[in-house]
Design a protein around this nucleic acid. Structure first.
Length: 270
DNA sequence: TTTGAGCGA
């Protein structure tokens, strides 16, 4: 049986994780999944997730978990969530050679509702002994479309963050003035588990993004004034890149200029 | 530290 017994069976359950053969999911996802990429603290996805024809056998009830530190193993993760009574299995993905954690894993639940509950309850909250936040999401994102956000991203870069700034605090810092805020993420160093001192804030309204770029410049977050900048957008569809030509021209021009300077120098020396 | 981000045999 896959259900982890209550209390005191962590070790045995841990062995089960390794041996357990999981049923491969069907090729077609049973239903569209809420695209919750960031920890949005107090923002339940108000979409109805009830499919017209419930396919209870194939329902996705596994969460992806990221930003793990190297020491966070199956046992630890199980301990974090065991009290929900809904964890079926835990697996941390490891490097084959070094068997070091790759920093992410999968948590399977006994039901989709249980998985959803944990996602809503724990995503973005602090991990026990971790000093960092749970970063949870639905597993098995349909490969091609990881982020098919129908609304374009209006994201800004926020630097100079103090060490204690979390996703939640960053978001709350903006929420009062910018109600369209969609989420905030502080970038975490996977090796140390600590913040890299910068992050991103995403807005629903472009106007609010533009406003925040100037209005929030230098505003205090925790103990330090923020440095706001434009976020480099990695969405290839919204970014055409005619820069290649310009760069080619620039370097060509530089070549010409350098050559010319050499001749001038030589000429001058003679 | 100053422009993320990672989905399993």
């Amino acid at each position: 049986m896959m259900q982890a017994g209550p209390g005191g069976m962590a070790q045995q359950a841990n062995q089960q994780y390794a041996q357990q053969q999981q049923q491969p999911y069907m090729m077609m996802p049973p239903q569209p999944q809420p695209p919750q990429m960031w920890a949005t603290s107090a923002q339940p996805p108000s979409q109805s997730v009830a499919p017209p024809q419930p396919t209870s056998a194939d329902e996705v009830r596994t969460l992806w978990i990221g930003d793990l530190q190297y020491w966070m193993d199956e046992n630890y993760l199980y301990t974090c969530l065991a009290h929900t009574g809904e964890v079926a299995s835990v697996k941390v993905i490891r490097n084959k050679q070094t068997s070091q954690s790759e920093g992410y894993g999968f948590i399977e639940f006994t039901s989709r509702a249980g998985a959803e509950r944990v996602l809503q309850t724990y995503n973005g909250t602090i991990m026990p002994n971790g000093g960092q936040n749970f970063r949870l999401n639905w597993a098995t994102l349909s490969a091609g479309e990881r982020r098919h956000d129908d609304s374009p991203d209006h994201t800004i870069f926020v630097g100079d963050l103090a060490a204690d700034v979390t996703d939640y605090l960053l978001q709350e810092t903006f929420r009062a003035r910018y109600p369209s805020i969609k989420g905030a993420k502080v970038v975490i160093d996977r090796l140390t588990g600590r913040t890299k001192g910068y992050g991103f804030v995403r807005f629903g309204d472009e106007s609010e993004q533009v406003r925040a770029m100037t209005e929030m410049q230098g505003v205090l977050c925790s103990t330090r004034p923020m440095r706001i900048g434009p976020a480099s957008n990695k969405n290839p569809s919204t970014q055409s890149q005619p820069k290649g030509c310009q760069e080619a021209l620039s370097s060509r021009s530089l070549e010409l200029i350098s050559a010319e300077m050499v001749t001038i120098l030589v000429h001058g020396l003679v």
